[in-house]
Simulated scan of single mutants.
Amino acid sequence: MLKLKIQDDGVAIVELNRPEVRNALNMALRQQLAITFDQLDHDTNVRCIVLTGGHDVFAAGADIQDFTTATTAEMYLRHTERYWQSIQTCSKPIIAAVNGYALGGGCELAMHADIIVAGKSAQLGQPEVKLGLMPGAGGTQRLLRAIGKFQTLLLLLTGKMISADEAKSMGLVSEVVEDDDTISHALKLARTIASYSPIAVQQIKEVTLLGQDLPLTGALALERKAFQILFDTQDQKEGVHAFLEKRKPHYRGE
């Protein structure tokens, strides 16, 4: 249901593995994702995470069978927000490698990443309105912050799917590559990030995400303090000395 591989270069690969239902996100898979991301967040050997559904499909959405008889009370008592929490709060950078469909919960899962690499044939969207529903795992709010009010409501109210190139032009994905290169390109980016100081990388992620919901003055103060804190790390001294000595730095996360 979920494959995990931790490489020697500090990159972890998390692969959704329910091909028979196009990686539909049922409760068991969400629970596995939560456990896995919590584990990776606490693993000091992991510096960057690539999340993928494989070469054919990322995730076609939630498992619709879960919705056929569910009541309001049952949906509430599931507390599915807890399963997304460990991905949302993961301090390690997450790169989503998206091929094929990323729809509904699959699109929401991709938007939990920090960078999205999409294959040219990828299709993204939030089609919940076609089922008499709406996004329930951040689709309205993450889309709004990524692409703005007018594009968000166009997608949510029509349920339309968009191509990778359309998503790139809207600002929903970071890069578009050939389908065969999606995962390898994401891994290349992850290796680059993993080669840097994990303290600096995690501070960049934390400040960027926290700052987006703060007034500019407060966000700039947060950035300034994080910048100053990094001067007390061995990694910062190593980076500067390596630059001056024209050698490759060796970052230890200290």
Rank of each mutant, 00 (worst) to 15 (best):
residue 1 M to G: 00
residue 3 K to S: 08
residue 9 D to P: 04
residue 11 V to I: 05
residue 13 I to L: 15
residue 13 I to H: 03
residue 14 V to C: 02
residue 15 E to S: 11
residue 16 L to W: 01
residue 18 R to N: 10
residue 19 P to H: 05
residue 22 R to S: 06
residue 22 R to L: 13
residue 24 A to D: 03
residue 24 A to Q: 11
residue 24 A to H: 04
residue 26 N to M: 07
residue 32 Q to S: 14
residue 32 Q to W: 06
residue 32 Q to N: 13
residue 33 L to M: 14
residue 34 A to Q: 08
residue 34 A to C: 13
residue 34 A to D: 11
residue 36 T to G: 07
residue 37 F to D: 03
residue 40 L to S: 03
residue 40 L to W: 02
residue 42 H to G: 12
residue 43 D to K: 03
residue 45 N to K: 15
residue 49 I to Y: 03
residue 51 L to E: 00
residue 52 T to A: 05
residue 55 H to T: 09
residue 56 D to K: 10
residue 62 A to G: 14
residue 65 Q to W: 07
residue 67 F to N: 05
residue 68 T to C: 05
residue 69 T to C: 05
residue 70 A to W: 00
residue 70 A to G: 00
residue 70 A to H: 01
residue 71 T to H: 08
residue 72 T to L: 04
residue 73 A to R: 02
residue 75 M to F: 05
residue 77 L to C: 12
residue 78 R to V: 09
residue 87 I to N: 09
residue 87 I to H: 01
residue 89 T to R: 12
residue 90 C to H: 04
residue 91 S to R: 14
residue 92 K to I: 05
residue 95 I to F: 02
residue 96 A to R: 01
residue 96 A to N: 04
residue 97 A to G: 06
residue 98 V to T: 07
residue 98 V to F: 02
residue 98 V to I: 15
residue 101 Y to R: 09
residue 102 A to P: 00
residue 102 A to R: 04
residue 103 L to Q: 00
residue 105 G to C: 07
residue 111 M to R: 01
residue 112 H to A: 12
residue 112 H to I: 09
residue 113 A to T: 06
residue 113 A to F: 02
residue 113 A to Q: 03
residue 114 D to L: 01
residue 117 V to H: 01
residue 117 V to Y: 06
residue 119 G to D: 09
residue 121 S to M: 10
residue 122 A to R: 03
residue 125 G to T: 06
residue 125 G to N: 08
residue 128 E to R: 09
residue 131 L to A: 15
residue 131 L to C: 12
residue 133 L to R: 14
residue 133 L to W: 10
residue 135 P to M: 08
residue 138 G to K: 07
residue 140 T to G: 09
residue 143 L to T: 07
residue 143 L to C: 11
residue 143 L to P: 04
residue 150 F to G: 04
residue 150 F to N: 12
residue 151 Q to T: 13
residue 154 L to K: 15
residue 158 T to R: 02
residue 159 G to D: 15
residue 159 G to S: 14
residue 160 K to T: 12
residue 163 S to M: 01
residue 165 D to A: 13
residue 166 E to Q: 13
residue 168 K to G: 02
residue 169 S to A: 08
residue 170 M to P: 12
residue 171 G to T: 08
residue 174 S to W: 11
residue 175 E to Y: 13
residue 177 V to P: 03
residue 180 D to P: 00
residue 185 H to M: 05
residue 194 A to Q: 07
residue 196 Y to S: 11
residue 197 S to P: 02
residue 197 S to Q: 10
residue 199 I to V: 13
residue 203 Q to N: 13
residue 207 V to M: 05
residue 211 G to A: 02
residue 212 Q to H: 10
residue 213 D to Q: 06
residue 213 D to M: 05
residue 215 P to K: 08
residue 217 T to W: 09
residue 218 G to I: 10
residue 220 L to T: 12
residue 221 A to N: 04
residue 221 A to W: 00
residue 224 R to K: 07
residue 225 K to Y: 04
residue 231 F to P: 00
residue 233 T to D: 12
residue 235 D to R: 04
residue 237 K to I: 14
residue 238 E to S: 09
residue 240 V to I: 15
residue 241 H to K: 14
residue 248 K to N: 10
residue 252 R to N: 12
residue 252 R to G: 14
residue 254 E to H: 09
